[in-house]
């Protein structure tokens, strides 16, 4: 497999299936791991970094989890390739900046990925469709165990896994759930919900990267604290919180459906209409309209649209994806045209 195979492929986490997938888009668990006594990436020399890539490569040889995986070296990728991987949620913006000694490993279904030499030596990620905290934990836990037999992890009994930044020390685990919350936004309850989340020391941010404003009514909620609780306890806490948010969103959807049904149907069908017929469309407008169409699918108002197609479009309408599909660089104006064509193609437009 190589990077170009990813484009013709729907990542597992975009299937739009799995538990609570009417509201939960995906679940992601990340573990930070470092090798004992090797300088952290911010202090390491190039030879140290290459050594880490090498060690990991040896450690995963013959490991079933990495059977169909591909190793991508950052200094061998162009800027569109790197942005493409960021858009696909396989790596961070930071990882795309300066390439020497940095790498990314991606498994066949894109369930599994490892950023090598980002802020820590390893950032292992498992990402799946729907609310799958337990299932994703089971996978990443086993994978981590198998790696810990081959790599000498940086670890102390009292403080757990040692990371470049002490905000990650301990379990070094970040669990994130991506939620589609259009009804909470439309009923203007979202800020109340986000404030409550912040009070419980969980973080929430938008779908299109850290520090971005939420677009398309998609929010990502994750734990802040990584020390002093077991991984299972942390995930259980996130799960409990997520279930409450889901309940709030469901109530808001019911209220909208009961009280403003024709307004809601109008908004949803118009959104689908624009998406099916536009010939020039910006990503901002697309994302807002996709959110409405997804809500229509979830409420059973739109039966002929496939949820996985909508989920996929959230990703593929982004700039680097369009350019990978087209196989060449596109200007912003060309992208708006190409985007509209892609959407019509996917949704059977005119």
């Amino acid at each position: 497999m190589n990077i170009n195979d990813l484009i013709n492929h729907t990542a597992e986490w975009l299937r739009g299936a799995g538990p609570n997938s009417n509201i939960v888009m995906s679940t992601r668990i990340r573990l930070a791991r470092n090798l004992a006594k090797v300088p952290f990436p911010n202090r390491a020399e190039k030879k140290d970094l290459l050594n880490v890539v090498d060690e990991l490569n040896k450690a995963i040889a013959g490991n079933d989890y990495f059977k169909d995986s591909v190793l991508l070296k950052m200094n061998e990728l162009d800027s569109i390739d790197k942005q493409f991987l960021v858009e696909r949620h396989l790596m961070s913006h930071e990882h795309a900046v300066s390439g020497d000694g940095k790498a990314l490993i991606v498994s066949g279904e894109e369930v599994l990925s490892v950023m090598v030499n980002e802020e820590d030596h390893l950032r292992i990620q498992v990402m799946q469709s729907g609310l799958t905290l337990n299932e994703s934990w089971a996978i990443i836990n086993m994978l981590d165990d198998s790696l810990s037999k081959k790599l000498q992890y940086a670890y102390m009994g009292n403080w757990g896994y040692l990371t470049a930044c002490p905000t990650n020390t301990g379990t070094a685990m970040r669990g994130s759930v991506m939620l589609h919350l259009p009804a909470l936004v439309m009923t203007k309850q979202i800020n109340k919900v986000l404030a409550a989340i912040a009070k419980l020391s969980f973080a929430s941010r938008g779908f299109y990267g850290e520090g971005t404003q939420a677009r398309g009514n998609i929010y990502q909620i994750s734990n802040q604290v990584s020390l002093g609780h077991s991984e299972e306890d942390i995930l259980q806490n996130i799960g409990g919180l997520i279930r409450q948010v889901i309940e709030q969103e469901e109530q808001a959807r019911q209220a909208l459906f009961m009280q403003n049904r024709s307004m809601l149907e109008d908004k949803i069908f118009r959104s689908l209409g624009v998406l099916k017929s536009a010939h020039i469309i910006s990503s901002q407008e697309t994302i807002e309209l996709l959110s409405m169409v997804r809500l229509g699918v979830d409420l059973g108002i739109l039966n002929q649209v496939d949820r996985s197609h909508i989920n996929e479009l959230f990703i593929t309408i982004q700039p680097a994806h369009l350019q990978k599909i087209e196989g060449k660089k596109l200007t912003p104006a060309q992208r708006d045209t190409r985007r509209a064509a892609l959407i019509r193609e996917k949704l059977g437009g005119v």
Partner: peptide
């Protein structure tokens, strides 16, 4: 950012209180 895993024992005293401040606990 710390430099390596050995920074933790080297700055043990400082980090112990810092971790407690960040996470509300300093015991894994």
């Amino acid at each position: 950012r710390l430099g390596c895993s050995e920074c933790y024992p080297a700055f043990r005293d400082h980090l112990s209180s810092l971790l407690k401040k960040i996470h509300g606990s300093n015991l894994h």
